[in-house]
């Protein structure tokens, strides 16, 4: 019992460090990548290829003045970045990176856990928006809650057919099912499309980054934050990108399973698939426009949810008729 707890704690610690390291270099990839897309150079002065830029940024953020605005609700203003950061980190715990022991928490309802954590993560955003006592953060918070309500539904509806076909809520077993039968991106392409679009909204990345649309809202919900509190939000936001990409790779692209009969190496294959989605999101970010707020809400309720529901019913019919068995 104690030993199991200890092992889990060590795994969790390794995962947290890996995620924070990934975050630091995601900022570098993001800035260099976006610069490439826009025919600029990007940060290239600090270290070779600008590789030490994240460290310089961290040092700068730590030494900035930590401001609390006068009209803030002090306790909640302080609590919000912690909540955002914690829930963003927690979501990765159930994603398997390799067979058997290669997951922090192999719980039998992993999909539900991911949902619960990603829904609770919205509290950070909303509290920041409200506790800042200022209008732009409030609008940013309101927008992200309205978006969450629409897109979480589509997201859930898009996972259901996958769960139905695999017959399990455990992410490890979903990966093993795909290892045996082939990846869900083949069987469940409509669900994959809906899931991918909805998770762009979850990560608040480009077509749907209106919660912090800088032309309209300064910086949205974290306008009034500075120093390490701002960094906490920044980390949380990029972690949603990191975790969201890993989750798509796990649900639809076979997770840690080695494709095309290549040798099985833990971590590596999930990393490759994960990097694919990271790049895809960056690509969309660099080349697409931001949708208007009302358009995207209409899109969530009027297009994604019906498509996901119809596809769910088709899958259910197929499974009941004994399709995959």
């Amino acid at each position: 019992m104690i030993w199991a707890l200890f092992v889990t704690a060590v795994k969790a610690l390794v995962l947290i460090l890996a995620l924070l390291f990934a975050f630091a270099y995601i900022t570098w990839i993001m800035r260099r990548g976006l610069a490439r897309f826009q025919i600029r150079l990007g940060p290239n002065r600090v270290g070779p290829f600008g590789l030490l830029q994240p460290i310089a940024d961290a040092v700068k953020a730590i030494f900035k003045e930590d401001i609390t605005v006068a009209r803030a609700d002090r306790f909640l203003y302080w609590l919000a970045p912690f909540l955002a950061f914690t829930f963003a980190l927690a979501a990765f715990a159930v994603i398997p990176v390799g067979p058997d022991g290669w997951v922090v928490a192999n719980i039998d309802m992993g999909v539900l856990y991911v949902f619960a954590v990603s829904e609770l993560a919205i509290y950070g955003v909303f509290l920041a928006g409200w506790a800042s006592g200022s209008k732009y953060p409030l609008m940013g918070g309101l927008r992200s809650i309205a978006a969450l309500v629409g897109y979480e539904l589509a997201l859930g509806m898009a996972i259901l057919p996958v769960v139905l076909m695999a017959g399990t809520l455990n992410l490890q077993e979903i990966v093993e099912w795909q290892k045996q039968h082939g990846y869900f991106i083949i069987y469940q392409f409509p669900a994959f499309l809906v899931y991918f679009i909805a998770s762009l909204a979850e990560m608040s990345r480009t077509p749907f980054d209106f919660a912090e649309a800088e032309q309209e809202l300064v910086a949205g919900f974290h306008t009034e934050y500075s120093s390490m509190k701002f960094v906490a939000f920044y980390i949380a936001e990029l972690l949603h990108w990191i975790v969201g990409s890993a989750l798509i790779a796990t649900l639809f692209l076979g997770g840690w399973d080695a494709p095309f009969g290549l040798p099985e190496i833990p971590v590596l294959w999930l990393f490759v698939k994960w990097a694919l989605f990271i790049f895809l999101v960056l690509w969309i970010w660099a080349s697409w426009f931001r949708t208007r707020y009302d358009q995207m809400i209409r899109f969530a309720w009027g297009v994604l949810l019906p498509v996901a529901t119809v596809w769910f019913l088709i899958t259910a019919y197929y499974v009941v008729k004994g399709g995959m068995a």
Partner: peptide
């Protein structure tokens, strides 16, 4: 389900209306 539906969906709607 209690956490997803109540703490997630319902409370978020609540808070949305308050804001």
């Amino acid at each position: 389900i209690q956490i997803i539906v109540y703490a997630g969906a319902i409370m978020v709607l609540f808070v949305f209306v308050i804001m």
